[in-house]
Design a binder for these strands. Sequence first.
DNA 1: TTGCGTGCAAAGGTTTTGCATGGCA
DNA 2: TGCCATGCAAAACCTTTGCACGCAA
Lengths: 136, 136
Amino acid sequence: MEKSYKTKQRAAILEYLKQNIDNHITADNIIEYFKKIGSPIGKSTVYRFLDSLVEENTIRKYSGSERGEAACFQYIEDGHECHTHFHMKCSKCGDLIHLDCHDMEELAEHIFKEHKFKLDICKTILYGTCEKCMNN
Amino acid sequence: MEKSYKTKQRAAILEYLKQNIDNHITADNIIEYFKKIGSPIGKSTVYRFLDSLVEENTIRKYSGSERGEAACFQYIEDGHECHTHFHMKCSKCGDLIHLDCHDMEELAEHIFKEHKFKLDICKTILYGTCEKCMNN
DNA sequence: TTGCGTGCAAAGGTTTTGCATGGCA
DNA sequence: TGCCATGCAAAACCTTTGCACGCAA
């Protein structure tokens, strides 16, 4: 474990991430938020801290699939580390949907046994169209 | 359908993509290749043409999942449009593996019926660790 | 006091865009 | 001839890095 200090910026960023546990937010969201409330935080601070948080498994990172799309981050709830469920992202509205379904675990096992590939469920995002957007 | 001209550059790029049907190549691969063989092609030409090819479903685009990773492109074989199989990418070695498995079609149907989400199999990449890398 | 954290500016990489020129039909 | 395609340079975009200064412990 490496040494690290508690600072105002780090506490604030972590708090923001916790409060947005149901959203997938970008580095820029964080930067803009703190600029708006009058206590701006430097880009590099944000990016570097997010990197550490990903490293120590406090947050999850989703790299964008579209051109130039920024990466998204999400706080990992205690005891809810999403090892057992996938995320589906709607290509149209960008919504992130949690797919809690036992079939998915079976799928991962099937792929491991039959296809010799160890799925990293956290990193994988299923793309498609959500119900709302299908009706539009 | 929009008008379009046949040009040396476009024919050459398409030919290169066809010959690399088993690889996933980047825009830069194309640019470097044509520079190497002595008939360089401008960046913008490459990017713009790749965009059109994706648009008309002649090639498939995989956007990188890692930071700053370039997008990959792949020619779509006739009658082999990968609507029925997923792609798995090894997070360690970067290999792209085609997952031809009927279970996946059932999965897509299951998700559609039970979770009201229309999977876009082409766009989805399953991340994990391949057999080779598991043994290292 | 030590050395990690911060933040600015600059650089990194991929991709896009503006614009004058080139070439297909 | 009309219009799309090309290619250069510049810009846009997200992210990383260098470095001097600030601040936690």
